[in-house]
């Protein structure tokens, strides 16, 4: 084929082609999300930090006081008590929530008509709001008009009426049980998706290898749901550290102000005592604590050597 020339002018430089720039397209698509983050997170965060450096009453002028709110906070026993109580609640509720969620997830991970029903039933409480669930629980726990106390008396568990909410221990456990009932379904879904992502072959290979059910769970299942478990753990710890509604609605911080959580304390300072600057400083400290906790959890649960 002598007529065909693949290079008409061998010495000429190839035609330069303009590089298509598409970078700004990507920016355009992320702008709405970016705007939301800026308006509803970054700006309020900046304002909170700014407020925390002021004496900021509800009415009247704010006054710059530097780090005075933070030094005051350092010596505020009631805040540290609230944090201690929050930590206690976080530990108990996280163990309860993730333990129950994992057990439920193991039960409903396989396909089947009955498991579909169970999944729905266990997930249902999640779709009720925290406030409405708390109101329901407050009524159920009511010593006279509720369910638990009269029922316990009826079936002979207690002599007379027993007020669940009058004592710290029973009040604390009753709120924790409510939270576990309401939220376990949510973490069940996260862990279930993790379990379902483990190929069935691994379990079968381990069965042939002679691993017992417990060995398969500890050596195959647990390591392979590390990532969804880390997600559930971080969400659970963050959610519990920010607990407020249930203690406000069911217990009003009582008995004897023993169930005031960190956010409850911030609420009290900001919107009951109207010390907005001090409340902002408490918020900043809580945010820092949460960040540190999340980083520690991520490090502990990070995958080593894979991918």
């Amino acid at each position: 084929m002598p007529d065909v020339q693949s290079h008409p002018l061998p010495s000429a430089a190839p035609t330069p082609r303009r590089r298509r720039r598409r970078g700004w397209h990507g920016l355009l698509y992320t702008l709405p999300a970016l705007a939301l983050v800026v308006v509803f997170f970054l700006i309020p965060l900046g304002m909170t930090v700014w407020m925390s450096l002021h004496n900021w009453p509800l009415l009247g002028n704010a006054r710059w006081i530097g780090l005075a709110n933070y030094t005051r906070l350092w010596n505020d026993a009631s805040f540290w008590n609230a944090l201690l109580f929050t930590a206690q609640y976080t530990i108990v509720s996280t163990i309860g929530l993730l333990g129950l969620a994992l057990a439920l997830a193991l039960m409903v991970q396989h396909q089947g008509r009955a498991t579909g029903l169970y999944r729905t039933v266990w997930f249902l409480p999640v779709v009720t709001g925290f406030a409405s669930a708390s109101l329901l629980w407050a009524w159920l726990s009511n010593v006279d008009a509720g369910l638990f106390s009269p029922l316990a008396q009826r079936i002979g568990l207690t002599e007379g009426r027993f007020n669940l909410l009058a004592d710290f221990d029973t009040a604390f456990w009753s709120v924790t049980v409510m939270v576990v009932w309401k939220m376990a379904g949510f973490y069940m879904i996260i862990l279930m998706s993790g379990l379902q992502a483990i190929p069935g072959d691994y379990q079968e290979a381990a069965r042939i290898d002679g691993a017992s059910a417990l060995q398969r769970f500890l050596w195959i299942t647990v390591p392979l749901i590390r990532q969804p478990f880390a997600l559930a753990l971080i969400m659970c710890v963050a959610g519990s550290m920010l607990a407020f509604d249930q203690f406000y609605i069911i217990l009003n911080g009582g008995p004897r102000n023993q169930t005031v959580t960190a956010v409850y304390k911030i609420f009290n300072e900001s919107f009951v005592s109207f010390r907005l600057g001090y409340g902002a400083a408490l918020s900043v400290i809580l945010l820092l604590i949460l960040m540190v906790l999340s980083i520690i959890q991520l490090r502990l649960l990070r995958d080593r050597g894979e991918s």
Binding site: P199, D201, E204, A205, A206, R207, I208, D209, G210
Partner: peptide
């Protein structure tokens, strides 16, 4: 399966 004196190689290898 573990008491049958068998070993199996899977299509997907099934390596942990």
């Amino acid at each position: 399966p573990s008491d049958r004196g068998i070993a199996m190689v899977f299509q997907t290898y099934a390596l942990y």
